[in-house]
């Protein structure tokens, strides 16, 4: 079978996570649909999770994994609240984008 000469190290994971984080960040900055922006935030959280898990193995310390567990809980709660807000605002106006929300200037 494949005798893998190259084994992905922790750094690979961390760089991948960094990439994911950056993509999420760009997404938040360029997209104007609040739902998508929100998804991008979730991507960023996922990048953090990946970082934690990769580090936990590298440091041989379980607490990194525990942290991910809490992040998952937080993400879930955040989604509930965030979608609640989005629904309550979009129920008024379909197709609201972040730029349309201009009742508040700035």
């Amino acid at each position: 079978m494949i005798t893998a000469a190259v084994v992905p190290t922790t750094t690979w994971y961390l760089v991948l996570a960094a990439g994911l984080f950056a993509i999420g960040m760009i997404g938040v900055l360029v997209r104007r649909n609040p739902l998508i922006m929100f998804m991008c935030i979730e991507l960023m959280l996922n990048a953090v999770n990946l970082t934690f898990v990769a580090l936990a193995t590298e440091l041989t310390d379980i607490n990194g994994q525990t942290a991910v567990f809490f992040v998952l809980v937080v993400a879930a709660a955040e989604v509930v609240v965030g979608l609640g807000i989005i629904v309550s605002i979009m129920r008024r106006r379909q197709q609201a984008t972040a730029d349309d929300l201009a009742a508040l200037k700035g």
């Binding site: 960040m25 938040v28 609040p34 922006m37 929100f38 935030i41 960023m44 605002i89 508040l104």
Partner: peptide, 13 residues
């Protein structure tokens, strides 16, 4: 509600 949404997105960020 807009305030909530803005706060939320940036806060999550």
């Amino acid at each position: 509600q807009e305030a909530g949404l803005k706060y939320f997105i940036l806060g999550g960020f």
